[in-house]
Design a protein around this nucleic acid. Sequence first.
DNA 1: GTCGAAATTTGGAATTATTCTAATTCGGAA
DNA 2: TTCCGAATTAGAATAATTCCAAATTTCGAC
Lengths: 142, 142
Amino acid sequence: MISLEQQKNPNPEDFPSELEGLRMTKQRREVLAVILAERDHPTANDVFTRAQERMPTISLATVYNCLEALVSHSLVRQVNFERESSRYCPNLSDHCHFQDEKSGKIHDVVFKGGVKLEDLLELPQGTKISHLEISLKGRFGK
Amino acid sequence: MISLEQQKNPNPEDFPSELEGLRMTKQRREVLAVILAERDHPTANDVFTRAQERMPTISLATVYNCLEALVSHSLVRQVNFERESSRYCPNLSDHCHFQDEKSGKIHDVVFKGGVKLEDLLELPQGTKISHLEISLKGRFGK
DNA sequence: GTCGAAATTTGGAATTATTCTAATTCGGAA
DNA sequence: TTCCGAATTAGAATAATTCCAAATTTCGAC
Ligand SMILES: [Mn+2]
Ligand SMILES: [Mn+2]
Ligand SMILES: [Zn+2]
Ligand SMILES: [Zn+2]
């Protein structure tokens, strides 16, 4: 796994020309920079709006294309809550998501040291897990 | 939590006239019976098709209405995998879902005794979880 | 640098699961 | 039986996402 530092204003031009085997085009750089700039799990449309500020000609279809490329090359994670629109997360470390029902905001939740989820589940011998998603909703304690 | 026996051909007319505070109409009985009849996590459209066999006049809108009523009264669980259409599950006990990538079929996965997910997560003190969904994808071991 | 091929981007149309609307029907209480 | 609120219905609307075909960009070979 690679590590892209998260900074307030990542400069898209600082990304190498290829990441995880994915050619970094101008648009992909911009989309990635937008996602790295904040940890707020934006939707595709949020990303589109923010990308337009620096690249007014980018299209929504391209944002979807870029997101799918970045996700499939493990540069960004896709996050789903029930039937809401997908959100995108720059945190590549092992974590899951909590949505505060009051604000709607999504927060990263990390696992306590050393525990593997697979240890908790009665899975048939030899099962290979390729994808795992844990989503929580609730309220922060007062 | 109530316990509705799962049988090959549940008879909708055997359900009481009210369950968990929800008035059981003819259509709600039929939708519930369809879901109880198999443990295969049907989509709304699957439920619609099956319900039509015994009730040819039922509409898809009604199936959606019934599903939402049953889910909100905790008689049925709604199950989501990424952006796929929602599926419905009659198993009200604590479990999560595994989708076999080969067949697309969804299987219930139970938690090993005594472990609480919250024990694994670094959640802020006092957080109240109102909803939790764990979805796995992968292959069964050969 | 030029050329052609392949990849990417783009605007707009298409898709599709789900929700909404407004009219009709139903069902239980009085 | 009548009445009234709830439920059902058909069909239209919605909206996130995907698809399409044309235009543009990038890349490697020369
Ligand atoms: Mn995924
Ligand atoms: Mn739910
Ligand atoms: Zn995250
Ligand atoms: Zn289930």
